[in-house]
């Protein structure tokens, strides 16, 4: 995960707390999405950025997981096509593991 983004997420988590703030991901692929979810939950596993060793405890969801909570027309228009392109099940499965 981008180092600058790690810094921003850290700031936001300190400001709003882990109960109020959630992270929504748009990753193209399972592993990278999982890595982002892990980084905001338990810290940067690559020990590269400001979240190295910092456990924010934030919950991250991939956009695909939030389909039911979003206006269906908006979802279709904004994300619908990518369901045909990306490996939805694999991404969801991976991101989910970091919320346990």
């Amino acid at each position: 995960m981008d180092l600058e983004n790690q810094a921003r997420i850290k700031e936001l988590a300190e400001k709003y707390g882990k109960d109020d703030l959630i992270v929504v991901l748009g990753g193209a692929e399972a592993e990278a999405s999982g890595l982002a979810a892990e980084t905001v939950a338990t810290g940067d596993p690559t020990f590269a950025g400001p979240l190295s060793g910092v456990s924010l405890g934030l919950k991250a969801y991939h956009m695909f997981e939030l389909k039911d909570q979003v206006d269906s027309e908006v979802y279709e228009e904004q994300v619908g096509m990518m369901e045909m392109v990306l490996n939805v099940d694999e991404i969801i499965e991976e991101v989910k593991t970091y919320r346990k």
């Binding site: 997420i9 709003y16 992270v23 929504v24 193209a28």
Partner: peptide, 13 residues
């Protein structure tokens, strides 16, 4: 909720 978005150019922006 407050939401922080991490989009992806080759996924969902």
């Amino acid at each position: 909720k407050k939401v922080a978005i991490l989009g992806d150019r080759d996924g969902i922006p």
